[in-house]
Write a protein that binds this DNA or RNA. Structure first.
Length: 256
DNA sequence: ATGGCAGGGCACCCCTGA
């Protein structure tokens, strides 16, 4: 089966593209999405279910919001990081077969001197602590989402331009390494990949055409799942849609 | 050095994103 992640930047705008993409990718069993920007009361549950999918969602007005769309029933759905008192809807988890899926929308951080930056680092620390328990309960675990971290300079179109900025700063990259220390593997780097592979391109300044992007959307796999992973790729096609999201999907193929 | 573009809320300008 395949699992995927996509920051859709408003599900209200992007729902037709999401359903179209799922039709074009029948092997994708579950898609984790971020930035739905919808309160639960306005979530298009009926449209998604009538298209033949199961869905779990947690959202709020204007900002954030996460969901998992699945071809198979989802069980054991939970939202948020239990020990973190946070009104922002950034985490939803569910079990699909024997695989625990954790969908995250990591805070952006805005700028190193913003209040949002320490919030991001604290949030990542709480995520890591919680995942230790979650991994003990669910050895077959996939952490998918928009991490808002470009882990290495090769994940940045112009490292010199980005040096010292949010998304690439050493404390953020250290938080990423702390996640890997839970014995999680970056599925994308398990395989040979083209240089300058990115998952996000700025809307401004012809970012996509210039391939001025970042790789900030990731799929991390626990050790048992990593051994069953046979491919991981970024699907750039939806970035060419009319009214595209600024992010594009990442897909991992699992031999389960 | 700044803004570029896009979405949403709310009210015509601001906030946020990355």
């Amino acid at each position: 089966m395949q699992i995927a992640t996509w920051n859709v930047n408003s599900l209200k705008v992007r729902l037709p593209q999401v359903l179209e993409w799922l039709t074009q990718h029948p092997e994708v069993t579950a898609l984790a999405i971020q930035e739905t920007k919808l309160e639960d009361a306005n979530f298009p549950q009926a449209e998604i279910e009538s298209a033949g999918f199961h869905v779990a969602f947690a959202g709020q007005k204007t900002y954030n919001g996460v969901a998992i769309i699945s071809r198979e029933p989802l069980s054991d759905i939970s939202i948020n990081i239990p020990a973190l008192d946070d009104p922002q809807k950034r985490v939803i988890a569910a079990t699909l077969g024997g695989v625990r899926l954790v969908c995250v929308y990591v805070p952006n951080g805005q700028a190193l001197d913003s209040d949002k930056y320490p919030y991001k680092l604290g949030w990542l620390a709480a995520l890591t602590t919680w995942l230790q328990d979650e991994l003990a309960r669910h050895p077959h675990l996939a952490l998918l989402g928009d991490f808002n971290i470009a882990p290495e300079d090769r994940d940045v179109h112009d490292p010199a331009q980005w040096e010292g900025q949010v998304l690439v700063s050493p404390p953020e990259r250290a938080a990423w390494q702390d996640l890997l220390k839970l014995n999680l593997s970056d599925a994308f780097r398990l395989f040979e990949q083209a240089d300058k592979s990115f998952s996000w391109w700025d809307y401004r300044g012809l970012g996509f055409r210039r391939n001025a992007g970042l790789r900030i959307d990731h799929i991390l796999l626990s050790a048992p799942l990593a051994t069953q992973c046979t491919a991981c790729e970024i699907d750039k096609a939806p970035r060419r849609n009319e009214r595209p999201s600024d992010h594009t999907p990442v897909i991992a193929t699992l031999n389960v």
